[in-house]
Design a protein around this nucleic acid. Structure first.
Lengths: 104, 104
DNA sequence: ATTGATGTTTGATGGTTGTCGAACTGTCGT
DNA sequence: ACGACAGTTCGACAACCATCAAACATCAAT
């Protein structure tokens, strides 16, 4: 019997991508900012973080690639949103992988 | 009201170390092997993984530094054990950091 | 003490990656 | 069409890191 809602289990590939994406402090900080509101504009990130636009763009590409962020375009602006289900799936898979067999 | 047992909250520093430690696939694999039993010898890891002793030692140092592994010496052998509370604290902190304010 | 086995440390190397600046693309007003 | 603003992409560079081989340290048994 399942006690948790059936998360869409990450592929081994995506698991790696998420882990890598979360490993960089700057990327983690970006993720946190975006997560602090329902959506977050790229422009706002560029103002908030002391790095070049190019660097922001690079990091966002990685976060999207990992599936942790969904991006939407609105005119000249781009908006980001955290996909918490993916993050939840990652943590679930993480705990699952280090659980002893035959233990809860 | 708290629904979860109060985990010993990771420091910002340890949070980074754990994220970094989990980012390398080899290190993750080592962690999984160790987690598959109550304890795991370094020797067994050296046999199981197709990398040099030096490399294993390096990875284990990182895992210990992150607090994910506890190591114990027994005669000429060294044994490792996963610290699941730390892993749990990491995932908890991870979810906490990307939760919107005023949302469950 | 000498040998053999287990880990650790060190130096070198090749690959990855975070960062910048600049060039480029795309969109909105005027 | 032009200029201003928003993002992306590219080339280069420095820092980091996974890996190896070899030297070193530690322990056990002969």
């Amino acid at each position: 019997m399942k006690t948790q809602a059936p998360q869409p289990a990450l592929s081994a590939r995506q698991f790696e991508l998420v882990a890598k994406a979360l490993a960089d402090p700057r990327r983690m900080a970006l993720l946190e900012s975006i997560g602090s509101e329902r959506e977050y504009s790229c422009q706002k990130l560029c103002v908030e973080f002391p790095v070049s636009k190019g660097t922001i763009s690079h990091h966002m590409k990685e976060l999207v690639r990992a599936g942790l962020i969904e991006s939407r375009r609105e005119g000249q602006y781009r908006f980001y949103e955290v996909r918490r289900e993916v993050l939840a799936a990652y943590t679930a898979e993480l705990m699952r992988r280090v659980s002893k067999v035959g233990e809860l």
